[in-house]
């Protein structure tokens, strides 16, 4: 399956740069994804994720630098390479007005033949009706067709742009299981997302881009330790702010009558113990979005960056 391979690097970007006129798509991207690895490619919308993916697939040509995929050149070896890549576009649109079955048959034939049982078992797994016309499908079902075509030929490398968009939570879990199976199979997965939690549970490493530049590449374990979340607690009676400031890991404390809002870095235990002194009506805890916390960690304080480097080492 991995013919054409010259090393254990599945995706290599060296100084990869794309400008659209004066506008920056991605600049000086240096990145490697190892064979058999699941890499999350994170960043807010417009950060350059899709540009990078399109460069890897040779839809775009770099302004500078180059990429190697499975040891091959994206442009020169496109025909050989794309047989080994499963690609899910970020903005999914299907050519033609066929049923999912006919469309998937075409994708299978074009990739040199795919066992139909693989397609039907993927469709079953995602609860997808193949007899319906793709054009008439809901966004979620279209996404499932996109996933089936990306996985159906068991490619050496899966390049997935926002794979869970439009999927309901149950199907998101099923998708993440498919990614884990692919990794167990020795396949490499490169998937973009703008939600940290989504890649956290499956990825080995995450690369984070912002404003067209690579901000960091981290092992997921080191991210987990720094899982910052926002917490909102509704008490039976008004509480005082002083009780909660100074708790380990708790910051940004705001109190409005009986409602406490704060962010917690790391363990929730100190906050819970302090809150338990009062009658708790409701407790809400949310993964903060990437833009808000994780990236600000890198961009708004130099000291934090050093601390991260130390923690990562």
């Amino acid at each position: 399956m991995l013919y054409g391979m010259t090393s254990d690097i599945a995706v290599l970007a060296e100084d990869l740069t794309k400008f659209y006129g004066a506008q920056r798509g991605i600049e000086n991207l240096n990145l490697d994804v190892k064979v058999g690895e699941v890499m999350g490619f994170l960043g807010p919308n417009g950060a350059g994720k899709t540009t990078t993916i399109r460069l890897l697939l040779d839809f775009l040509r770099p302004t500078r630098g180059h990429a190697r995929i499975l040891g091959l050149d994206p442009r020169r070896d496109k025909a050989v390479l794309h047989r080994q890549i499963g690609y899910l576009p970020g903005e999914l649109a299907f050519p033609g007005r066929e049923t999912a079955k006919d469309l998937l048959r075409f994708f299978g034939d074009a990739r040199g033949g795919v066992a139909w049982s693989t397609v039907t078992s993927l469709a079953e797994r995602l609860d997808l009706d193949l007899s319906r016309r793709v054009r008439a499908m809901s966004k979620g079902n279209k996404q499932k067709v996109g996933l089936v075509q990306a996985f159906m030929h068991q490619p050496a490398l899966l390049i997935l742009d926002e794979p869970t968009s439009g999927l309901d939570p149950l199907m998101q879990q099923e998708f993440l299981a498919m990614v884990r199976d692919a990794r167990d199979n020795g396949q490499t997965v490169f998937m973009s997302s703008h939600v940290l939690a989504e890649v956290q549970s499956t990825a080995d490493r995450v690369a984070i881009v912002r404003n067209g530049q690579l901000a960091a590449v981290e092992k997921v374990e080191s991210l987990g330790r720094r899982a910052v979340r926002s917490v909102e607690i509704h008490f039976g009676d008004p509480v005082s702010r002083a009780e909660f400031t100074g708790l380990p890991g708790v910051s940004n404390v705001e109190v409005a009558g009986p409602v406490l809002r704060c962010t917690v870095d790391g363990r929730l235990d100190p906050l819970i113990k302090a809150a338990a002194l009062h009658e708790v009506i409701d407790l809400l805890s949310a993964e903060p979005d990437l833009e808000e916390t994780f990236l600000s960690y890198y961009y708004h304080s130099e000291g934090a960056t050093d601390a991260t480097a130390a923690a990562g080492a």
């Binding site: 697939l57 690609y87 576009p89």
Partner: peptide, 20 residues
């Protein structure tokens, strides 16, 4: 047309050179 309506991405992902 496919380039404008987005269908191009999946078509171009076929294992064929651009010229082919």
């Amino acid at each position: 047309r496919p380039e404008e309506d987005g269908g191009m991405e999946l078509l171009l992902a076929n294992p064929l050179s651009r010229k082919a």
